[in-house]
C-alpha cells in the first residue's frame, strides 16, 4: 500500500548520506540497556515494520462505551422533554454510536504500523486522516512507557516519545505488550544516545 515500507534510504539523496548513528562505545555511557542485544552495533536495534497487539482493539472498543452512553443519554433526555419522539431514540443513538466506534477501533488497529529504522522512528496510522510521521532519533528528548487502567487490565502498554517540537507527545505507540514496550523504550533510548544530539532543539 505504501512505497515507504522498504526503508529510509529510498529518497533521492541516499548516495550522499551517512546514517546519523555511530557505534556506541562500550564504556558505560549506556546504562541499563535492558533486553537489547549487546552494545556496539545499533543496526541490531532496528527492526522490521511492526503492527500493534490485536488486543488493543478490545481496549479501544471498550473506551468507546462511555462516550456512546453519554451521547445516548443526552439524546434520550432531550427527546423525553420534547413533545415528539420517545426516549427510546436515545438507546438507538447509543447503539449506533457504539457500533461506529467499534468499527473505527478495528480500522484504526489495521491502519497502525511502526518501524524502528536506522536513524528515525517511522509511524503510520489513522482512519479518517492517514498520517505518516518520521521522528529522527537525534530529536528525542525522552521516552516513556505508560499503562492506563484499561490497558493494564488487558496486559498492554504504550511507548510515548517526546520531542521538542510543538506537537510534543504526538509520537506515541499504543498496544504493545509490556515486555515489548520496555524493549522499545530501551532500544529508542540507546538509539537516541547513539545519534549524538547536541541540544536536540
Amino acid at each position: 500500500m505504501d512505497t515507504d515500507a522498504d526503508g529510509a534510504t529510498d529518497g533521492p539523496f541516499d548516495d550522499a548520506l551517512t546514517p546519523a548513528v555511530r557505534a556506541v562505545p562500550d564504556d558505560g555511557t549506556v546504562e541499563g540497556g535492558v533486553a537489547g542485544p549487546g552494545p556496539g552495533d545499533v543496526t541490531e536495534l532496528t527492526g522490521p515494520r511492526r503492527t500493534l497487539d490485536p488486543g488493543i482493539q478490545v481496549v479501544w472498543v471498550l473506551k468507546g462505551v462511555v462516550p456512546s452512553l453519554v451521547l445516548g443519554g443526552i439524546v434520550g433526555v432531550a427527546f423525553a422533554l420534547l413533545p415528539v419522539g420517545s426516549p427510546g431514540v436515545g438507546a438507538a443513538v447509543a447503539l449506533v454510536a457504539f457500533v461506529l466506534s467499534a468499527v473505527l477501533s478495528v480500522l484504526r488497529y489495521r491502519s497502525w504500523a511502526y518501524e524502528v529504522r536506522e536513524d528515525s522512528l517511522y509511524l503510520e496510522r489513522g482512519v479518517i486522516t492517514h498520517v505518516r510521521t518520521v521522528a529522527p532519533y537525534v530529536r528525542i528528548q525522552h521516552v516513556d512507557a505508560s499503562r492506563g487502567p484499561i490497558e493494564r487490565a488487558f496486559g498492554l502498554a504504550s511507548t510515548v516519545v517526546y520531542t521538542a517540537g510543538s506537537r510534543g507527545a504526538d509520537v506515541s505507540i499504543p498496544g504493545l505488550s509490556p515486555a515489548d514496550a520496555e524493549d522499545l523504550q530501551a532500544r529508542l533510548k540507546r538509539l537516541a544516545i547513539a545519534a549524538e544530539g547536541e541540544d536536540a532543539v
Partner: peptide, 20 residues
C-alpha cells in the same frame, strides 16, 4: 508529499553528519 517527507528527513540527517 511522501517524497518530500523522505527528502526532509534525509537532508536533516545529511546536515547533522556534515556538522558532526
Amino acid at each position: 508529499a511522501a517524497d518530500l517527507r523522505r527528502t526532509v528527513a534525509d537532508r536533516l540527517q545529511a546536515e547533522l553528519a556534515r556538522r558532526r
